[in-house]
């Protein structure tokens, strides 16, 4: 019996328990829907059919999971030393803006030279956007949650400004977007779907995150800070450097998500390149307990919900908000469950 209890608490079972909690959230939402006279099974069937009923649905789950994975990493990396980066949305837009600048000014370069440059610009843009709150936190003690939230608004507005002002496509009849990128600036799409090379970026980023965290000195020090920041300082670990480092690494990945969105999905910069990917990414990271592998799983789960959410509306006339409720409840249940403090990996 005692062995069973230990097993139930062991790390190996965490995914299983997460799944159980997710199911719990579905039940709760089911009750909510019943209260409003809607059939929850029909709603879940629609979500399921939307995401798994066709290869297109499946491919869209992946398309959606790409920015979510990267934005989740943007939250998870700083979270490993206890920083709460809610700025994924702004960092994504900053990365998109930087990549757009590259695509518009260096569009004449051949693909092999341009694309790596755009990737670098995306990373840099996101990192720059994260550097501001990181420096504010490090130098003046300004709380990073608040500053990243405020910066989200600023950066999104900056995108609105450039696409309607200096970068507006002169041939667009005054419509708010930049000129279309040249072919050399576009990421490849695969298999006739919208799945794009951003998938490899995301997977490599997650794998690197996992590797650095577990196998390098940086990762070790990050884990030490995460466990006990005071002890870390006493042990001579430079806390400030890690604040800057983790925030910028996170921001860079969100920026990469932005780069992938403009270079693969949109092929130009315009308002509305993200439907709250930054915020949903924050959710993904927390659902995954900031664990790299968990992020992949949870990004896919939320991808399923988003893609399925359209079906809920098209087939049943239920508001898309239904899936937002499901997402929020899963978040609550996981947050409230006992292993919230568990630090894995």
């Amino acid at each position: 019996m005692a062995r069973l209890a230990r097993l139930a608490d062991s790390r190996l079972l965490i995914p299983v328990r997460l799944l159980g909690l997710t199911a719990l959230a579905f039940v709760a939402v089911g009750i909510f829907l019943l209260l409003f006279g809607k059939n929850p099974l029909a709603a879940y069937r629609a979500i399921f059919a939307g995401a798994f009923g066709s290869t297109y649905g499946l491919s869209e789950v992946v398309v959606r999971a790409i920015p979510l994975m990267l934005c989740a990493a943007a939250t998870a990396i700083p979270a490993r030393i206890g920083l709460l980066n809610v700025g994924g949305e702004g960092q994504l837009h900053a990365g998109a803006m930087a990549a757009t600048w590259g695509a518009l000014t260096l569009g004449f370069l051949p693909r092999a030279a341009l694309l790596p440059g755009l990737v670098a610009l995306g990373l840099l843009g996101g990192a720059a956007a994260a550097l501001v709150p990181a420096v504010l936190r490090w130098a003046a003690g300004v709380n990073e949650t608040i500053s990243t939230l405020l910066l989200n608004y600023v950066i999104v507005l900056l995108v609105e400004y450039v696409v309607r002002g200096p970068w507006k496509d002169p041939l667009s009849y005054n419509w708010p977007f930049t000129p279309e990128f040249s072919d050399s600036a576009r990421l490849g799409l695969y298999w006739g779907t919208r799945i794009h090379a951003g998938l490899w970026f995301a997977l490599v980023a997650i794998a690197l995150f996992y590797f650095v965290l577990r196998r390098t000195r940086w990762g070790y020090e990050v884990r030490v800070i995460g466990d006990n920041p005071e002890a870390a300082v006493r042990a001579g670990i430079p806390l400030g450097r890690y604040i800057l480092l983790t925030m910028c690494a996170g921001g860079a990945l969100a920026g990469l998500a932005g780069m992938a969105e403009v270079c693969a999905i949109q092929s130009r910069l315009r308002p509305g390149i993200s439907t709250g990917f930054g915020y949903t990414g924050f959710l993904v990271s927390w659902l995954a307990l900031h664990h790299p592998l968990g992020i992949v799983a949870m990004a896919v789960l939320l991808g399923v919900l988003s893609v399925g959410g359209d079906q809920v509306q098209i087939s049943l006339g239920l508001p898309y908000a239904t899936v937002n409720i499901i997402m929020a409840l899963i978040f609550f249940v996981v947050l409230g469950s006992r292993f919230r403090a568990a630090r894995t990996a």
């Binding site: 649905g57 398309v63 969105e261 439907t275 893609v307 359209d310 098209i314 508001p319």
Partner: peptide
């Protein structure tokens, strides 16, 4: 008739249209 409302002007709308076509 199929309808979908509150669809942001993002890449989302492409998916919504695809799903309508699938239906």
């Amino acid at each position: 008739v199929l309808t979908a409302e509150n669809i942001p002007e993002t890449a989302e709308v492409e998916r919504v249209m695809e799903q309508m076509i699938q239906k």
